[in-house]
Simulated scan of single mutants.
Amino acid sequence: MIRLGTRRSALATAQSNLVADSLRALGHEVELVLITTIGDVNRAPMAQIGGTGVFVSALRDALLADQIDIAVHSLKDLPTTPLDGLTLGAIPLREDPRDVLIARDGLSLGELPPGAVVGTGSLRRQAQLDALGLGLELTGIRGNVDTRIAMVADGKLDAVVLARAGLARLGRLDEVTETLDPIQVLPAPGQGALGIECRADDVAVLAALAPLDDAATRAAVTAERQLLATLEAGCSAPVGALAEVVEGEDGPELWLRGALGQDGGVRRLSANGPVDDPVSLGRALAKELLEE
């Protein structure tokens, strides 16, 4: 029996059930164990309650205490600094990593009038949306998907910006009014990807997770998370990144785009490198962003 630790939110349990079903299809028995994290019970701004890690620390504690065997994280929530004794046993095929807009009256981003109130809890989104110069009023919000979408339906906000992947996993893509082009808003490092963490010495669980790992997704998110780590930024920082495996002149290569919000603007750069060395690519692009 594999004990799978998950947060209690609808999105977290949906993501965990996807992993559980994949493991069951491989012949494993899986039991879901519900865990409450600080980020689930404290509605203060992310930076105020600790930023990176508020959604994962309780899951990691349960892993280290041998209360669960695996934990399923939204990879964008997972700190970039490794934790002794734990490892990412698998990073499955990534969902679409882009951000989306859910706006009143079916409006797109360009159709929102100046002064329209747009909600997002992300400094990254705020910085990039502000840099577009659309005259939007950006306001910080917290809460689950239902809570955020309800703010638009109730007329408290004109629109909200969310991760497309979460809505896809909840079966709610029909509420999206626009999928945002990464040229406008780069997603968070690791957005759309799941990280399945386990104890580093649990050989049986590592073997069970191995078939779920997607090499291209792992390479892409490793580059993105290395960029974040090199910038010494957390998941609440105004950093966007998106890497993709593309076909180059000499075969597959990794293409990485990065954005850093600073001093009221956003700096954007891109670079490419070998698929088998995503760490060097992420580190190099981060240093370029800092030098700019």
Results as ranks from 00 to 15, higher is better:
Ala65Pro: 02
Ser57Tyr: 12
Ala20Tyr: 08
Arg164Trp: 12
Asp277Gln: 02
Ser270Asp: 14
Asp202Cys: 08
Asp263Lys: 07
Arg94Met: 15
Asp276Val: 01
Ala127Ser: 12
Ala10Pro: 08
Leu75Met: 06
Gly110Gln: 14
Asp77Glu: 10
Ala159Cys: 04
Asn272Pro: 00
Ile2His: 08
Arg267Pro: 00
Phe55Cys: 00
Arg164Glu: 13
Glu249His: 09
Val152Ser: 07
Gln262Ala: 09
Leu11Ala: 13
Gly240Phe: 02
Leu167Ile: 08
Val145Met: 14
Leu227Met: 09
Ala165Tyr: 05
Ile35Met: 06
Ala116Lys: 05
Leu228Ala: 10
Thr217Ala: 11
Asp213His: 14
Ser122Ala: 08
Asp276Thr: 12
Gln67Phe: 00
Thr6Asn: 07
Gly106Gln: 01
Gly195Phe: 01
Thr179Arg: 05
Gly192Trp: 03
Leu88Val: 11
Glu175Leu: 14
Glu224Tyr: 03
Arg199His: 03
Arg3Lys: 14
Ile49Trp: 09
Asn42Pro: 01
Ala204Leu: 08
Pro97Tyr: 08
Gly110Ile: 12
Gly251Trp: 11
Ile183Glu: 15
Lys287Asp: 12
Leu209Ile: 12
Thr37Ala: 12
Arg268Tyr: 00
Glu29Pro: 00
Leu157His: 05
Met46Tyr: 10
Ile141Met: 09
Ile91Met: 13
Leu86Ala: 06
Ser122Leu: 05
Ser22Arg: 15
Ala150Asp: 13
Leu26Asn: 10
Val205Pro: 00
Arg3Ala: 10
Pro252Leu: 15
Arg257Asp: 01
Arg283Ser: 13
Ala188His: 11
Leu18Phe: 10
Gly258Val: 04
